[in-house]
């Protein structure tokens, strides 16, 4: 079994385990659904990623020298995206165009850094994307 296939298999196994434990905790722990929801969402993301990448890539490597070069190029400019975003947020708040609380500003920053950074070439299913989805699932659960 190639390394790519093996990694996708691990993702699928982790996904199944997380979904199962999420469902069990939702059913067994009455009243508290946050942990169960987080496990369920994260598990589904792992599952979808594992299956879709396996179908898409098969035996071919996930990355090679070209994709690594693109990633490195993107990462070298990621700080600039962050800087422009922070700059925009500051002036929007300062000029009272948008009233941002600390929580919203931080949440938007997390979203930007974990999903929309140029270095993240495969955003929706990457590690950063997973972190982002987990963050939003927790955030949504907390907001009720």
């Amino acid at each position: 079994m190639t390394r790519t296939k093996q990694r996708n298999l691990y993702r699928i196994i982790i996904g199944v385990l997380m979904v199962a434990s999420g469902l069990v905790s939702i059913i067994l722990i009455t009243g508290e659904t946050v942990i169960g929801s987080i496990l369920l969402v994260a598990g589904l993301i792992f599952l979808i990623r594992g299956i879709s990448w396996h179908l898409r890539d098969g035996d071919s490597p996930e990355s090679d020298e070209r994709s690594k070069k693109i990633g490195a190029y993107g990462l070298s400019y990621a700080w600039l995206t962050g800087l422009f975003f922070m700059f925009g947020l500051f002036w929007l708040d300062y000029l009272n165009i948008v009233r941002l609380g600390t929580q919203v500003a931080l949440a938007l920053s997390i979203m930007l850094f974990s999903r929309f950074q140029p270095g993240c070439t495969r955003c929706t299913c990457s590690g950063e994307g997973m972190l982002n989805n987990m963050f939003w699932s927790v955030y949504a659960c907390r907001q009720g």
Binding site: D59, S60, P61, S63, D64, E65, R66, S67
Partner: peptide
């Protein structure tokens, strides 16, 4: 695809 597999890169490359 064959060549990509032989040299260990993605087909897109």
């Amino acid at each position: 695809e064959d060549l990509a597999r032989k040299v260990g890169v993605r087909r897109e490359t």
